[in-house]
């Protein structure tokens, strides 16, 4: 039993880190530019499709991932320059409408290029099976996701906390006008941040492709989870995004694993069998509502 709980905790960690890859870019864009970008999920989808296409053509998963990141960063930068830039000064609702429109267009574009049916993206042969650790086997590819997630979290932490650009980013997140007044080229900074966010999306899409279906609409289902994460963590805070991701990952995974079992121990079997899965499905929403009830601006509010 302890081993099972341990394994489930590892699963939760992995699911959380995978959400973090998405949430990090989302929270940066949101925090710094005060911009609700619903099309974030579309960048994730574009990243996964690019990775699948390049991996299939080149026969190498790694080349696929790199190409996806580079390609999606370019798409992201273009998008920022062409459309999103004009939205920063607009209210949230206009941003919602415009980026919703972008979702519609992106989905149709992907359908037109790659067709209606899901496409294939598989892990490299060496990582497609499980590995033995401490007596239980665990999927090698999930371990890779954990490693990549930890590395990205570290790199982002160093970039945001220790570098000059990171300082601007933090300054931008807490007070945009002041940052501009200090003579920093905010426009270029925004394009850069947006491109980095897009790259992280693509990384998430490419890394999750071997575990999840690469299909039209894949961005929307995971976008909601990413929003849950950044709202729990506090918008604009990388630390909050990390804590939020792990919290959502662990609570969701352990909830699904343990709730039915827990309920069975003190409820009649029939009731527990009905209630367990239903409760597990809404657990993260209950978590979010509860956190916002007590901390209405998330766990780590970035703006003072």
């Amino acid at each position: 039993m302890t081993q099972l709980i341990l394994e489930q905790a590892l699963n939760g960690l992995q699911f959380g880190l995978m959400l973090f890859l998405l949430a990090a870019g989302l929270t940066l864009v949101f925090g710094i530019m005060d911009m609700i970008n619903l099309a974030h999920g579309s960048l994730y989808m574009v990243g996964a499709y690019l990775a699948a296409a390049v991996a299939a053509a080149s026969g190498s998963f790694v080349i696929g991932v790199l190409a996806a990141v580079a390609g999606t960063m370019a798409v992201g930068a273009l998008l920022e320059l062409a459309v999103l830039r004009r939205l920063y000064t607009r209210d949230h609702l206009s941003q919602v409408l415009a980026t919703f429109a972008l979702i519609l267009i992106a989905n149709e574009a992907v359908r037109a290029i790659w067709g209606d049916q899901p496409v294939m993206l598989n892990a490299p042969e060496a990582l497609s099976g499980p590995v033995e650790i401490a007596g239980f086997s665990y999927p090698a590819f999930r371990l890779l996701i954990i490693a990549v997630g930890v590395l990205v979290a570290l790199a982002l932490y160093i970039a945001v906390a220790k570098t000059r650009v990171g300082m601007w980013v933090r300054a931008g997140a807490s007070n945009r006008e002041m940052t501009e007044a200090l003579g920093i080229n905010v426009k270029r900074l925004f394009t850069l941040v947006f491109a980095v966010g897009a790259g992280l999306c693509a990384l998430a899409g490419a890394m999750l492709g071997p575990l999840l279906a690469v299909q039209v609409g894949m961005g929307e289902s995971i976008l909601i989870l990413a929003f849950v994460v950044i709202v729990i963590g506090g918008i604009g805070s990388i630390r909050g995004a990390l804590v939020g991701s792990l919290l959502v990952g662990v609570v969701d995974t352990l909830g699904r694993a343990l709730l039915p079992w827990l309920l069975r121990s003190f409820l009649p079997g029939e009731v527990a069998a009905h209630l367990g899965p239903a409760l597990a499905a809404i657990l993260i929403y209950v978590l979010m509502a509860a956190i916002l009830f007590w901390k209405p601006a998330g766990l780590f509010p970035a703006r003072g």
Partner: peptide
Amino acid sequence: RTRGVYFIMITLAFAQMIYYL
């Protein structure tokens, strides 16, 4: 108790709970 984007998301959360139920 919340406002702005937090309000957007908390209302979504409740709607999702009702949907899954």
